[in-house]
Amino acid sequence: MRRFEMILPSSVDECVKALATHGAGAKTVAGGTDLLPQMKNGLVKPAVVVDLGGIAALKGVTNGAGLRVGACATARELELHPEVRKRYTALADGAALVGSVQVRNLATVGGNLCNAAPSADMAPPLMALEAEAVIAGPKGERRVPLSAFFTGVRQTVLGADELLVALVMPAPPVPPEAGLYVSGGSYIRHTPRRELDIAVVGVASQVTVQNGRCVKARIALASVAPTPVHATAAERALEGQPLTPERIEQAAGLAVEAAKPISDQRGSADFRRHLVRVLTRRTLTAALARARA
């Protein structure tokens, strides 16, 4: 690795100040599972590395009216968190697919999002759950819907002097609190290998049902565009409708419209479009089954 200086802030303010001082020459490190291979391969060459590990405000998962996931919460924490497994199942699904257990104990949700790979496994579940990014900067805090967070391959709305602090999302309604509303979610990706692979395509679905009709559907796709994207036409086609197998199949077909895939070593564009249809159907079916469970 190229030599660098390390800064060890103990608060968000200290961190933001360090980022403002060092600008684009600084990189933040949390789990390091994306950054260290990039640094070892010379793809990024920061002069300064700012370690987020000493900032308590970035840690942990808080469950209240909704869910607040600290940017430095690990994939393993989310995979095992009882409330995430129960109510935010798509997120638990996505977190469990990141790397190996040795990687998931390090890899953070913030890192997965800020690295902004089109294949990030935690991005579609969080988009389907309508998460917002809480961002700290020199002028204070701002919130950005995660669907507007990504601007390109490995690019986000984060300024060089800004820090992702947390993800916040509303609680999907579950009985008995919500009466007749039920909600369920699922994330499934296709990979040639079962473990330690990168999604050829990933799809997250979250559906809320009332009296047999879908009142809200959110579908997000990974690895089919420069950023994770919502399948908005498919979402609209489901809302207000009973979630019959025919309706789900129709939505799966519409989801393909949102995909603008490339052909690469992981799969051709045609194969990826096919996978969007299949995985949208499977995740909607699984989400519905979980909502009813």
Partner: peptide
């Protein structure tokens, strides 16, 4: 693989000062 605070991690991805 080593245990960091009891959890298995890839020590090649952790900066020593972390």
């Amino acid at each position: 693989t080593v245990h960091l605070d009891g959890k298995p991690v890839a020590s090649c991805l952790v900066l020593a000062l972390q």
